[in-house]
Every structure is written in C-alpha cells, then in structure tokens.
Amino acid sequence: MRVDRTIRVSFPAPARGLIRGIGRLLLSALLLAGCTQTDSLKTSQTFQRPPGTARVLLMPPDVELYELLASGLQEPRAAWTETAKRNVVAAIADLLRPKNAELVPYVEPTADPAAERRHTQLIKLHDAVGYSILVYQYGGPNQLPIKQGKFDWTLGSEASLLQREFGADYALFVFMRDSYSSEGRKAMMVGLALLGIGVSGGAQVGFASLVDLKTGNIVWFNRLISTTGDLRTQEPADEAVKELLHNQPL
C-alpha cells in the first residue's frame, strides 16, 4: 500500500497523491457560468417516518466561508461564517416546518466524559461513512461494484443513543464550504476572459445526510457542487439550502 509521504492520512489511506491533483481538478469540475449540481441518494428500503411531528437532531453545521482573492488564496471569513451558519439553520427549520418536522439543537455532553466519548466516536464514524459514500457510492472511478444499484449505509445501533438522549427520530448532518470572489478576483476573471483564459470564481461544495436514529441507517444523502449561491444573506441562503436538502424524504 502506498501512501503519499506528505500526508499521513488515516489508515488505510484512500486518497493517494490527492493534493497534487486537487486544485486543478476541483476547479475544472465547475463551469465559469452558473452551475449547480446535486446528486441525492435514498435508502434502498422503504422510508417510513413515525406518525406526528418528526424530531430532527441538527448536528452542528460544519460550514466555512472564504473570500477567493485574485492571487488564488482563500481568506477565511469569520463574520460571514457566523452569519451563514445562522442563515443555514433558519433555512433548514423553515424548509422542514411545513413537513411537520422540527429541529432539535445538538448539545455536547461536556459534563460527562464517557458520554462525550461515545458521541465523538459516533460522529467520527459518520465522517468515515459520509466520506465512503462520496468516494465509493457515486458511480465515480472508485465505485464499489457491490454497492452499485442500492444504498444501504449505516452507523449501526449505537446511533440510538442520540435518540434516547435528545428524543429525536433523525439526525441531520450538514457540511458546506463556500468561497466568494473578491472584487479583485472578479476583475481578473473578466480581464482573463477577454484573453480567452477561463479562471474559476468562487464555489460552493457540500453534503448533507439524514440518519434514522432508531436503526442508524442513512436514509438520505446529498452531494452539492455549485458555482452560485450565497449563504451570507437569508434569501439566497434559503435557495442554497433547498438545493442542499433536495429530495430529502421527510
């Protein structure tokens, strides 16, 4: 097994030489003009929600916003990120309310180290499962043949501890990274376009997953890649969240 020396990733390392290719490929996956691509996947089994209001545990949204500078550097923007997180949470709540589903905020059990450890392991397992879905399920070059044509991913029965602790039926995980072109970048893009050179603007990538806490099964998963969308103000954030939660089953 070969591992790129510069990156000691978790063993085994699924992503060889990834840094070398990422910049080029990540940007070439997007078009200059507005482009949004979502691919949602649903569990192979029939989805049955419990009667009445569904309680959805919203895990702390992993959202970060950056400004894309003319130099190509991405500057992390804390104020944008704070605002975006609030907008995203509000948008999710608004989207789920008419489906008779309410959000329950996740709270870390900091007072109880044993509980904290169990929560942490469950969240780390979700990270690993989410990554595996992205890499091995979406029909890309790493598609696992046996997983093809069905969607049966799970966190296992340990997930029910979240059901017990929060009285929630489902858990929703949200991950977003978003960058916005600075004025300098926009000017550069226009200038280079006149010369026939295409250069990317900001991009939005993300995924969301809905976990049935009774079984630990991932009942819905969505991947989002977009060159439009703005999380910094409520209305466009609502639009972006609608894309992110495209086809969610509640």
Binding site: P14, L18, Y136, P141, N142
Partner: peptide
Amino acid sequence: MPRLLILVAIAALAACTTY
C-alpha cells in the same frame, strides 16, 4: 476526517482505484 479529503470526495476526485 480531514476536511480537505471531504472536499476532494465531494468533487469526486479521490485518487482512482478500480474495484
């Protein structure tokens, strides 16, 4: 999970292995 790997994964760019 290193966030960079997640970004790569989303853009379907994890190094190619044929299964």
